[in-house]
């Protein structure tokens, strides 16, 4: 077999193997999207109930709560980046990291010190490679987030927020995550988590009804004390679920185009291999004919 032909056959083989893997990954993530989406939907009632309750307390009481009060000077801002544990998801992780970089440039230009909290191995790897510091990392389990992790992150952030900036606390907390828009679109989203802007109306009941005058038990302030950390947890949990669903969608899209590209490669190389085989045969024929001619001339 000619050397050229052998090279092409090798390339076809390798593209076929790659295609098998990418096809399998595409199917796996396609089935996981459904589950991840169902989890996003299932957590909806909880976050709606909490958002409603928090806006009720914030609207009907004049409580100044530390979590909702804008600090006079912001010395340090924290950015929480929600990436994934695994790659092979197209621009999923680079999008969210780029968004975080833009945010931190903006915050730095406002004279704020920026610290990072990272979720997911990819963000941790990105920071480790660039020898940059992060305060705390959470890795593992981004594909299938559990509420305990959200609670842990929430507790850490609220504790840091309550600390004065001079002792290493933060005055602002932003989260950056990929929001699942559709199977084809995932957009990186930046949300300022703390101080809270409760009256944001994103998950208000749609029927425009006025919130009733609530009776609070015990006091409105105590209710807010208990509700706000829970609200933050639920926002973080929602971000994690969105990010997981977006990751699966991104993987599916990336793996689909990888399989398509492998198909195209296989076709191209098959053409080339056929050409090489044909020209090899042609050459052999002409060698034989030439040889026979040379022998017959006497």
């Amino acid at each position: 077999m000619g050397a050229q032909l052998r090279v092409y056959r090798q390339k076809i083989k390798s593209a076929q193997t790659t295609k098998k893997i990418t096809r399998a990954m595409e199917l796996i993530s396609a089935s996981r999207i459904q589950k991840a989406q169902a989890r996003v939907a299932a957590s909806g009632p909880y976050s709606r109930a909490i958002t409603r309750a928090v806006s009720a307390v914030a609207t009907f009481s004049n409580v100044d709560h530390v979590l909702t009060t804008e600090p006079e000077t912001v010395e340090r801002a924290a950015i929480v980046i929600f990436s994934s544990d695994r790659g092979l998801a197209g621009a999923f992780n680079s999008n969210v990291l780029r968004e975080a970089e833009e945010l931190s440039t903006l915050l730095r230009s406002q004279g704020k010190d920026v610290v990072y909290y990272l979720v997911g191995r990819k963000a941790v790897g990105y920071f480790a490679f660039r020898r940059r510091d992060s305060v705390q990392n959470w890795v593992g389990g981004t594909d299938n987030p559990v509420f305990e992790t959200a609670k842990e992150i929430g507790d850490t952030l609220v504790a840091k927020f309550l600390e004065p900036a001079a002792e290493g606390g933060v005055d602002e907390i932003h989260i950056v995550y990929n929001r699942f828009v559709s199977m084809l679109t995932q957009t990186p989203e930046v949300v300022r988590l703390l101080p809270l802007e409760v009256v944001e109306g994103i998950e208000e009941p749609g029927d425009n009804e006025v919130l009733p005058l609530y009776e609070f038990e015990p006091e409105a302030g105590d209710v807010l004390d208990a509700l706000l950390p829970v609200y933050i947890e639920s926002r973080i949990f929602n971000a994690m679920l969105q990010s997981a669903a977006a990751k699966h969608a991104a993987t599916q899209k990336a793996m689909k185009s990888a399989s398509d590209n492998a198909d195209k490669l296989i076709t191209d190389y098959t053409r080339l291999a056929n050409n090489a085989r044909q020209s090899e045969i042609t050459q052999q024929i002409s060698e034989i004919v030439g040889g026979a001619d040379a022998l017959s001339v006497k």
Partner: peptide
């Protein structure tokens, strides 16, 4: 059971938020 004690809710209860 709220932090203040047990509470019973029947239809027609006033709006309430309790921990």
């Amino acid at each position: 059971r709220t932090t203040e004690g047990d509470i019973g809710i029947l239809p027609g209860h006033e709006p309430l938020l309790a921990i």
